[in-house]
Design a binder for these strands. Structure first.
Length: 562
RNA sequence: UGGGAUGUCGCCAAGCGGUUAAGGCAACAGGUUUUGAUCCUGUCAUUCGUAGGUUCGAUCCCUACCAUCCCAGCCA
């Protein structure tokens, strides 16, 4: 089949990892695929994790394989159960299902300890009493080889006894560590006798106070993969240098599974930051309201913003999988969000900055009910009821006293179409004592409901809301969190925070159909953008909508040019 | 200056010795439109980091150079 015979649905993602898997399946190296997603429960998942999730779970799905969720909980000092719970929820929300129960590296602590003893028995590991500072100086530098620890030649028996003593809590934190005996002269610093167990008196979220020694990531990760029968261990580029160590452990312990570690590049997004430390700083410093603030690039933040799981997954799919360090433009994410919401979000009208209009020729007490489509292209989505009356609100931006032909909205003396309703003409401007426009007197053309007026053409279409049949709502307009494309490159990323990343409007007016909006429901407010009823603060009595993303705005471009 | 990686359009990204160098996003120019939205049409790399080489033929192979990223936690 040639490329242009493919429909969009037929196009399966292709990338270097899938190519490797395809070969492994063809060659018979593997009969099935087993991946894993191994987050450390020390923070919330962000857009970068979403990529890893999509790769690991996505490959498992597409190859009819399985993907485990395993918390990489080897550092109790940093980990919290609350994070683990939030992470699991985020993955479920994204729509992925892990294989069996949630795993934990801690589940393998006993096995890991036994493997460490095996290495000692093989004279491949030793207890080292060098302080951290000493160990650093013994390690050498990038260009100078390291030198052997004075404790490197302890007897197996002594090492075994000391390791047991470490485990028994007979030594202070940091006073000694179990190291593996590889090569202090290796050009790869990771191979210069890395530590595999350290003494750390801390309460662990899974094992409580059972242990006072904990295995390091390098020792734990590959072995955990092997225990779980992982075929392809997919991780990010910074672990490339660790691969020789990953392989060394599996080659030197008694285990009959040797997963292949494959590294891909992290996802970087313009105008955002994906460093747990920095995201945490935004939370702690009160720049945002929490890890799930709609401005945060966390999964839960994007969810609260109104981004759907499918939009996020679509975006990840569009960014591809390579080993090239890259930074993706925000417009790609916004495109995925708009595409999804444009298709699925019901329409409604909301006036952000109300300007009152009185229709002088409309009966005082008349109220008309109009059935408006929920989606202009999808009739099957049904209708909603809107109300028309003598007093209405339009947006302040949709009126000008005078304007050139390019301005397709309401102008004094000119006509405009009210979306889903009549054509009106502006007759008079009412001002307050300070010369501010506070009201417009207009006349409506009663023969224009659902049909074009005779003898003249309105300039455009604007949205509106009935004064009597609308509700006040709080609307939060979000903008990018950072003003520069790559805040991580700045000396102090905090100085690039966009002071206007949130604008709150509390006197917006929304049509009545929105009073039944459920939290997390996303609507298109016509001509404005997509808005999501806040997951936590929105209710029938207190309407709160977060702007997910604006509509594309070619008018803004035209205006900017002039 | 050691080791590991990467360099194809503004941003992503296919390509795997013979292609008119896919596609998406962005941008630009038109058309439709009761959302300046959507939708539709068109334009957008004689060139693949640079320089040599191998070959009838190179983005794909070789060599050198250049640029960028990662590594000196008892973090992951």
């Amino acid at each position: 089949m040639s490329k242009d015979e493919n429909t969009a649905e037929d196009i399966k993602p292709t990338n270097f990892i899938r190519n490797i898997i395809n070969k492994d399946l063809e060659s018979g190296k593997h009969q099935s695929v087993q991946t894993r997603f191994p987050p450390e429960p020390n923070g919330f998942l962000h857009i970068g994790h979403a990529k890893s999730i999509c790769i690991n779970f996505g490959i498992a799905e597409d190859y009819n394989g399985l993907c485990n969720l395993r918390f990489d909980d080897t550092n109790p000092a940093k980990e919290e159960s609350a994070y683990a719970e939030a992470i699991a929820k985020d993955i479920e929300w994204l729509g992925f299902k892990w294989n069996g129960d949630i795993r934990h590296s801690a589940d393998y602590f006993d096995k890991l300890f036994a493997f460490a003893e095996e290495l000692i028995n093989k004279d491949l590991a030793y207890v080292c009493e060098l302080s951290m500072e000493e160990m650093r100086s013994y390690r050498g530098t990038l260009t100078e080889v390291g030198k052997n620890s004075p404790h490197r030649e302890r007897s197996v028996e002594e090492n075994l006894a000391m390791f047991q003593a470490m485990k028994a809590g007979e030594h202070k934190d940091g006073s000694m560590a179990l190291r593996v005996k590889i090569d202090m002269g290796s050009p790869n610093i990771n191979m210069r006798d890395p530590v595999i167990y350290r003494i750390k008196t801390a309460h662990h979220i899974r094992t409580g106070n059972d242990w006072c020694i904990y295995p390091t990531y390098d020792f734990t990760h590959g072995i955990s993969d092997a225990i779980e029968g992982i075929t392809h261990s997919l991780c990010t580029l910074e672990f490339e240098d660790h691969r020789p160590l990953y392989d060394w452990f599996l080659d030197n312990i008694s285990i009959d599974c040797h997963p292949q570690q494959i590294e891909f590049s992290r996802l970087n997004l313009e105008h955002t930051i994906t460093s747990k430390r920095k995201l945490n700083q935004l939370v702690v410093d009160g720049i945002v309201d929490g890890w799930d603030d709609p401005r945060m690039p966390t999964i839960s933040g994007m969810r609260r913003r109104g981004y759907s799981a499918s939009a996020i997954k679509d975006f990840i799919g569009r960014t591809g999988v390579t080993k090239k360090v890259h930074t993706v433009e925000m417009s790609l994410l916004e495109n995925s969000v708009r595409e999804d919401l444009g298709e699925n979000a019901p329409r409604a009208m909301a006036v952000l900055n109300p300007l009152k209009i009185t229709l002088t020729n409309y009966p005082d007490d008349k109220v008309e009910s109009i059935q408006a489509p929920k989606h202009p292209q999808k009739e099957e989505m049904g209708k909603r009821e809107i109300f028309f009356s003598k007093e209405i609100f339009i947006d302040q931006d949709d009126f000008r006293e005078s304007a050139n032909k390019k301005y397709k909205r309401l102008v004094l003396g000119k006509a405009v179409r009210l979306r889903n309703a009549y054509v009106i003409t502006c007759d008079e401007i009412i001002r307050d004592s300070e010369d501010n426009i506070i009201e417009l007197k207009c006349s409506y053309d009663e023969n224009t409901l659902g049909k074009n007026p005779e003898g003249y053409k309105p300039k455009g279409v604007i949205h509106w809301v009935s004064a009597s049949h609308s509700k006040v709502a709080t609307i939060r307009l979000y903008d990018r969190l950072f003003n520069v494309a790559n805040p991580a490159l700045e000396d102090d990323f905090m100085t690039t925070v966009n002071p206007n990343c949130l604008q709150t409007i509390d006197n917006a007016r929304v049509e009545m159909s929105l009073t039944t909006a459920l939290p997390e429901a996303v609507y298109q407010f016509e001509r404005e953008g997509y808005f999501c009823a806040d997951r936590y603060q929105h209710s029938t009595d207190n309407l709160v909508f977060n702007r997910t993303v604006t509509l594309r705005d070619s008018w803004a471009k035209i205006e900017a040019k002039n």
